[in-house]
Each structure stands twice: as structure tokens, then as C-alpha cells.
Lab assay of single mutants.
Amino acid sequence: MPVRRGHVAPQNTFLDTIIRKFEGQSRKFIIANARVENCAVIYCNDGFCELCGYSRAEVMQRPCTCDFLHGPRTQRRAAAQIAQALLGAEERKVEIAFYRKDGSCFLCLVDVVPVKNEDGAVIMFILNFEVVMEKDMVGSPAHDTNHRGPPTSWLAPGRAKTFRLKLPALLALTARESSVRSGGAGGAGAPGAVVVDVDLTPAAPSSESLALDEVTAMDNHVAGLGPAEERRALVGPGSPPRSAPGQLPSPRAHSLNPDASGSSCSLARTRSRESCASVRRASSADDIEAMRAGVLPPPPRHASTGAMHPLRSGLLNSTSDSDLVRYRTISKIPQITLNFVDLKGDPFLASPTSDREIIAPKIKERTHNVTEKVTQVLSLGADVLPEYKLQAPRIHRWTILHYSPFKAVWDWLILLLVIYTAVFTPYSAAFLLKETEEGPPATECGYACQPLAVVDLIVDIMFIVDILINFRTTYVNANEEVVSHPGRIAVHYFKGWFLIDMVAAIPFDLLI
């Protein structure tokens, strides 16, 4: 008679799926529990143990900040960024110097990925580790590398530091407007667009060049630039800015003055950032001319202004700041037409079709709590990747769950009947059967004279019903998954307890 339990259901295979997918890609990662103190490590794979030199037993239950890997060259700011990422709910990448158990130093890129439950609360953290440099290539500990984003994938490793954006290309926007319009339909740009040429040739750093990471940081200074100062900065030398009595002219307006920039070969870094931020506020060169004239017309309804409409929906549905990093990277690809469009465009503009998908598509409701890094690593669709929660398995109709209350009560009843059979069957065979043979035949009273025979008949009927119930009862397979398919249940029961239950259900007393 089957006594099969499996009270692990309803099970959740999400954690096993993450481990299996990460292991298949030869990654070095740990999984931490966000619900406990210090976000203790609950799993670390073999790749991480080989990377740091510690065994799994030495890593388990330690804080996922990996303070046991810190050393003299470990930056405090990087460690603080990892700790801050564990307090938030967004994906974050941090470069930090770690030390192995043998004392060797290596520069590592740590990717902190939160995993949320159905309520939107962070319950786990996945920390992925990628070695960037070994100890002989690690720089000085005073050099802070965590304020910069990861290198873009479309640049060669040897040319990542030679990417320079020439400031004269930004200063000569109005001069290039006529050349853009003359391109017409034969050019790649839309009317009114501004073409910015980027020099990728390796050259020595000069005062006129600005690194790509500095251009990325310009967006942080746009908020500090007032509207009046932006307007004066875009007017140009024809209309000098008016300053109040006793007030000095704005240095932001002076930063885009061609006369002032041409007199000296070098520009201050602050002026460069502010000038680029001011130019980015204009949607095209037409807006710059309109600002000089004193009238700013409404933005025209053409394809170039609607190019950012799908980007707005993608940004609203993005799951991490990696989408913004990807957008900034692609927006700086050289030799393309940049349409400086305000994100607050007309909502009635139709979304044009684009061959290049900048932001990841909208994630469906079932995966809105899973970050983009987890979705990318697992390579699963929205119909396959579940949320991290207890999910009731989908069972067929008329199927009994093996952990249901009805099955528990039924098993206790069958257990009592088995005990009765084990006690009274030998007793009936030894004593009652002998008395029946010696006594007179009682054929007239039937079952009324033999109450134990009636009980034995009921017990046999219950055993037959138990066999039928076992054909529709779920079970737990070797992978700790609840199986509810009727065919698989029948095959599993035939290979197991079916023969024993059938022999126990045969009414031998009635056959004798």
C-alpha cells in the first residue's frame, strides 16, 4: 500500500533555474538572501570558489559584500557603492579590487542584480563577478574607477581610450546646418538635424578633445543650467548677453562664444560640459537660429522629431539603469545623424518603425519583477520565466494532490484497515475457520451469522477504491517536481505499489 509523501509542494524551481543557467555559462556568482541580516550568502558556485580561493563552506553565510576579499588596494568608495546597491532595488555595476585567499590582487567587475517577489519586494541578490585585470595590471588604489561605466561593446579594446569628441564640431553647429540641408533625401539625416562627426583615429590627448566618459557625465550638469543662461549661451556672438549692473557675465554663455574659444586653444572642462549641455537642449539648428531671432517656433511634425517616441515608452518600462547606459552608448555611435529632440514631445505622434532597438522591449506582467540581467542570462521568455513566489501546480481535472487534506485522511483510514487485516486475518484463519468446520452448517442466516465476513468484505472494497484513487494521485519525481499527468501517474504506480495493492485487495476469504 503506498505511503508516498512529498510535502515540499507547491515547489518553486526558480532558484534552481537560475543556478542551472548560470552554471551553463561558466559564470562566477553568488546568491544572497536579502531578508536576513547583512544579506548572507546562501549559494556560491564553483567558479566563484576558484576565483577567490575560498571553499564553499568558508563563503556560505558570510555577508555578500565580500568584505573578506578586501585588501589594501580595495577602494572604500567601491565598497560603499556595493553596500548601497544592496540597500536599493536597481541593478548596478561596480569595479573593485579584490584579494584572493593567497593574497593576489585582481580588479573585478561586480554586477549586483536584485530579484523581487510578486509584491515588488527584493528577496534575493545575485552578484556576478568578472575579472577585468590581474594584480600586475591593477593601478594605484588612489585612482577611482567606479565613477565610470563599463566599456562599450562596439569599441575595440585597444581603442576604448582613444575615443574623442571634438569640441569644434559642437561649436560649428550653425555652420554645418547648410551642408545638412543640402544633403536632402540623399543624406542619412532628416531636415533640421545636426550631424556630429566623431574622430576615432588614435591621437595624443589634446586640450581640444573630450573623453567619452566626460560626455556621459554632461547629463548630470544640465539641471544646474538655468533657462535664461541656456538661451544666452545659444544666442551666440551676435547678441551678447546682458548683465545687470554690478553683475558679471555668465561664464556659461561665454563658453560657447566662437570668438572667445578661437582665441585660446584650450577650454576648461567645466565650460566644455556646460556648452555641450546647452546645445543638447535645442532640438535642431533651426531652433538655434530661432533663439537668435527671439522667436522659438513649435517643433515640426516630421520623422526626426518622432524618433524618440518609442524611446520614451522603453525608458518607462525599463527595469534597470543598464538600459540608460545602453541608450547613452548607442546615442554616441560615430558617423550617424543625431536628432536633438526633447523627450517631452507630442504624445499624438505616431511611433516610426526603427531597425535598431535601443531599449529592451516591454516586459510582460509575469516578468515585471525580474531584472534585465536575470532575463538576459536565463534566456527565457515571458511565458517560461515565473515570478519568485509559491505557485500552485497546474493539475488535470479529477486529480488528487498527494499533500491535500483528503489524501491525508484517506491514508490514515487505509492504515487502520491494514492494521485490522494484519490482526484479524490470522485470527480468523486459526480459530474461526476451525469452529466453522466443526459446527453445523448455517446457510440460512447468511452474513448475519458471520459479522467478521462483512467487515472483511468492506475492507476489500476499500482497498479496491484505494487502488483507483492512487491512479489519480500526484507524486514527486526525482527532481522534486509534482507530477499531475494521468499517464505518468499510471506508469509510476504500475512500477511501484500496484502489484502489492492488488494482492492485498483480493478477497481470499470469499474465494475459499
Rank of each mutant, 00 (worst) to 15 (best):
V41Q: 01
L315I: 15
T319G: 08
V8E: 12
D287Y: 05
D197W: 01
D355T: 14
L225C: 09
V122F: 03
S255V: 15
A350P: 11
N45Y: 01
T145Q: 11
I18Q: 06
A156L: 14
V8Q: 15
P347A: 11
V195L: 05
A277Y: 12
Q81L: 09
N146T: 12
L343N: 12
L338W: 05
S206T: 15
R312P: 14
A282Q: 15
K28C: 14
A40D: 10
L311S: 08
A121R: 07
G306T: 05
A32G: 09
P352I: 06
A190M: 11
S284T: 13
S209C: 01
P361L: 05
R73A: 12
T319M: 07
H7K: 06
P258T: 11
H147R: 07
H7T: 05
K364F: 06
E177R: 09
P249D: 04
S55P: 06
H147V: 11
S182D: 05
A188T: 09
F129K: 01
G6L: 11
A253I: 08
P361T: 12
A290F: 01
Q81I: 09
P299H: 07
I42A: 01
P258M: 13
I126H: 01
A79V: 13
V115I: 11
R269P: 14
L338G: 12
G226H: 13
E177P: 14
P249S: 04
A89T: 13
L267C: 13
P352Q: 07
D346L: 08
Q25G: 07
S263L: 09
Q25N: 14
S255H: 09
N45K: 01
R62M: 08
L200V: 12
A193D: 12
C49N: 10
R292G: 14
R301S: 15
S354M: 10
C49V: 14
S140M: 15
R27D: 07
S255T: 09
Y99K: 01
S351L: 05
Q25D: 06
A244E: 14
A244M: 11
R148I: 07
D119K: 13
C49S: 13
S104N: 13
A83K: 08
R292P: 11
V8M: 15
E130I: 05
T371L: 10
D259K: 15
L170M: 11
A190Y: 11
T319V: 07
A121E: 09
L155P: 07
K28H: 11
S26F: 08
A268K: 11
T270C: 12
D213Q: 06
S266F: 07
M137D: 04
V131R: 07
R76C: 15
A9K: 14
V115C: 08
V374C: 01
A253Y: 10
S264H: 04
T371D: 04
L173G: 15
H147Q: 03
L380I: 04
M218A: 15
M60E: 03
F129V: 01
Q247A: 11
S284D: 09
V325H: 08
R301N: 09
R301Q: 07
C66Q: 01
N33M: 06
Q247N: 03
W154S: 14
G186C: 05
I123S: 13
G246H: 15
Y99I: 01
Q84K: 12
S26G: 14
L165E: 13
L200R: 12
L311E: 05
V196E: 01
R269E: 15
Y54W: 07
K21T: 13
P300S: 07
P299F: 03
A175D: 07
E91T: 07
L349S: 03
P299G: 07
L212E: 06
R252Q: 08
G226K: 05
H7A: 08
A282P: 07
A282Y: 15
G184S: 06
A211G: 06
S207H: 15
S261D: 12
I126M: 08
V3A: 11
A303E: 11
T371S: 06
G24A: 08
L343K: 05
A268Q: 15
A244C: 08
G262W: 13
P386A: 05
L225Q: 08
P386T: 01
C66H: 01
I333H: 14
T152V: 12
L385F: 14
